[in-house]
């Protein structure tokens, strides 16, 4: 009896938090189908009185400053996919060297890697970073990719190294005897065997890159054609300054940025959960 009462309370609490979690998303979805006058008129109703797809059409075809959301979506996909490829290559190769190979100065390099990855100051070194990238002619989408790849979190490195530890060293030795080079061992043996963990790393870096705001914003400022989705959406917010803010367009744009990542999350959520927890709890 007491158990049952307790269970009801637990579900009530979980339910309240579930509503708290869903409300902002549901209202975003709802506003993306409302007309701007309806949004401006207010009201807490979720179902639009006048259901319209115009917001999506407008955002998709007209966009802003002559560039449509199709362009921004392409930019986001381009940046995110290249970031994934780069991160997987750099992370797996560094992890392989640190976990498997012996060479002078390994410990020192490893410590430098860890230190800088933890120090990574984020927004406050954004300006120096911009100075450096623009002197290298890299203040464009490729620059965004490179920065994202090389300032990748220590968690990725730990995660991959931890997984590599479970792969038998005898495989390496057998390959070595058969005349495989050290790079060959990595390429033909370790990399294929690390696929599961690299899937997690890929998802995490895709999500990070797709969602990134400040870096692509800075690197592509003055270049509206290079904006990513997130940057373009935030621009919609600030450009609406005079007169009525165009919440309908903002919310439709938001759906473009949110839906892909939520879809991936729904189908792959186990990988995300693994990636987030495994990387940190051990440390």
């Amino acid at each position: 009896m007491k158990r049952k009462k307790w269970n009801i309370l637990v579900y009530l609490f979980l339910g309240i938090i579930a509503v708290f979690t869903l409300i902002p998303l549901l209202y975003t979805l709802s506003a993306s189908f409302k007309t701007n006058p309806e949004i401006a008129a207010g009201g807490a109703h979720l179902i639009p009185k006048e259901f319209t797809l115009d917001n999506y059409k407008q955002v998709w075809s007209v966009g802003q400053e002559g560039h449509t959301f199709w362009t921004f979506t392409k930019n986001s996909i381009f940046v995110s996919l290249l970031t994934v490829v780069g991160t997987v290559i750099v992370t797996s190769m560094s992890a392989y060297c640190f976990q498997r190979r012996h060479f002078p100065g390994k410990k020192l390099l490893y410590n430098i890697f860890l230190a800088t990855m933890f120090i990574g100051a984020g927004a406050i070194t954004m300006f120096p970073l911009m100075q450096i990238t623009s002197s290298l002619q890299l203040n464009n989408l490729i620059g965004v990719v490179l920065v994202q790849v090389f300032s990748t979190s220590a968690a990725n490195l730990f995660l991959t190294m931890g997984y590599m530890k479970t792969i038998s060293v005898e495989l390496d030795q057998a390959a070595l005897i058969d005349g495989c080079s050290y790079f060959g061992i990595f390429w033909r043996i370790i990399l294929p065997l690390c696929k599961p963990i690299l899937a997690t790393v890929s998802l995490m870096s895709f999500q990070g890159s797709w969602n990134n705001y400040l870096l692509p914003n800075i690197m592509t400022s003055m270049k509206p054609a290079m904006q990513t989705l997130v940057v373009a959406i935030v621009k919609l917010k600030s450009s609406g300054g005079a007169g009525a803010t165009q919440y309908n367009l903002m919310m439709a744009g938001t759906m473009f940025a949110v839906l892909p990542i939520l879809t991936i999350y729904i189908f792959m959520n186990q990988y995300f959960v693994e990636g987030v927890t495994a990387g940190a709890v051990k440390g």
Binding site: Q207, N211, Y213, I233, M251, T254, V258, I261, L262, F272
Partner: peptide, 10 residues
Amino acid sequence: MLSVAVIGVI
């Protein structure tokens, strides 16, 4: 899973 900036907009 969502972008912090997008959460700001929402």
